[in-house]
């Protein structure tokens, strides 16, 4: 049993060991009262939907002896929810679902928390990002669109996204760097709203998650140009005509060297025991086997990577460094 302790600070080291020294399956511990499932985002968003689907799946298949209760704590770009978990030291009846604000919120706002203040449980999936334009625009490929941006003055093209200094804007900044031109980034409250603004022609493009814009694609209102991943998506169900998720090329292959995936992971408060973490890892492994979960993955064209333990922690360290780098370059770091 080895543990990664690159940032070895006393308490953190203890946490790391907790997360790493997990035993597979056969967990002795079981929850004795309802488990609070914190969503660090508002009702109706992507994380909230996933949390409520999980709640439904767990209830329907009786995967837990007690209930799972979803609670939204969205204040301060999710900071409120993460602080709540951070401060619930040793409470095994609390879990939290993350989105990229796990990394971006503390950096952008200075709210004092870090993923190392919590106990990592598991990565459930990774959410993809796709570059979308309105279907009535002439651009058929990412290359066409980039050429158009390059030909116009800075700030001519408008990119819409969810929130400010968040994953969407980080991708936009990286995209601008790859293209070599500035765009105008317009933040909206939710991904659904961004997709509709794109359909209405109020913005030129967006970097919506697949699930946020797929229905507009089916209606031939928007067009996906490329996906910000290293390989094309595996889902081959027809969506519009002969097109499926697998027919969307990667941005890298289209000459835009940007890759970004968003973590959908589960964390627990600090100071919980190994058995308690193992219980939840096991729980979510069972969830992944249900048909409802598989359907959700397919609908949202998720990247189905599952990680727990040491592997997950290494991934988190890498992702944190990446976010820090991207946000530093974009000038999004607060606290000066």
């Amino acid at each position: 049993m080895k543990h990664f302790n690159a940032f070895g600070l006393g308490a953190v080291a203890a946490l790391g060991m907790t997360a790493l020294s997990m035993l597979p399956a056969s967990a002795a511990w079981e929850p004795t009262k309802p488990v609070e499932f914190i969503v660090p985002a508002g009702t109706g968003g992507g994380a909230d939907q996933m949390a409520r689907t999980l709640q439904g799946i767990i209830a329907k298949h009786s995967l837990m002896s007690t209930q799972l209760v979803v609670i939204n704590k969205s204040g301060g770009a999710g900071g409120e929810g993460f602080l709540d978990v951070k401060n619930a030291k040793g409470n095994p009846h609390k879990i939290v679902i993350t989105l990229s604000n796990l990394f971006t919120t503390p950096l952008a706002t200075g709210i004092p928390f870090n993923w190392k203040d919590m106990t990592p449980v598991a990565m459930l999936a990774l959410d993809e990002f796709v570059l979308w334009v309105n279907a009535s625009e002439p651009y058929k490929t990412a290359g066409d669109y980039v050429a158009a941006i390059k030909a116009a003055p800075d700030g001519t093209f408008k990119m819409g996204g969810t929130g400010s200094k968040s994953e969407d804007q980080i991708i936009t900044v990286a995209f601008e760097k790859a293209v070599g031109k500035k765009m105008t980034y317009i933040p909206y409250k939710g991904g659904g709203e961004v997709a509709v603004q794109l359909v209405g022609g109020h913005i030129n493009s967006s970097v919506n998650n697949p699930i946020e814009a797929v229905s507009q694609w089916r209606g031939d209102k928007v067009r996906p140009l490329c996906v910000f991943d290293s390989k094309t998506l595996p889902y081959t169900d027809k969506i519009l005509g002969d097109l499926s998720w697998s027919s969307v090329p990667t941005c890298v292959s289209s000459g835009v060297d940007v890759e970004y995936l968003m973590l959908r992971g589960i964390f627990m408060p600090p100071g919980v025991t190994d058995e308690q973490v193992a219980y939840f890892v096991d729980l979510f492994k069972k969830v992944r086997e249900t048909p409802e979960w598989k359907q959700l993955m397919k609908d949202g064209a998720f990247n189905q990577t599952f990680m727990a333990g040491a592997e997950f922690k290494t991934w988190l360290e890498g992702a944190e460094a990446t976010h820090k780098g991207l946000m530093q370059e974009a000038g999004f770091i607060a606290g000066n």
Binding site: G75, G76, A77, E80, L83, A108, T109, G163, S164, P187
Partner: peptide, 22 residues
């Protein structure tokens, strides 16, 4: 009070975590 959606900055919270939510 709370997070300014457009700039992603906290404002009028004076460092208080209670006011994050506005």
């Amino acid at each position: 009070v709370g997070l300014d959606m457009v700039t992603g900055q906290l404002r009028l919270t004076f460092g208080s975590t209670e006011l994050l939510n506005g």
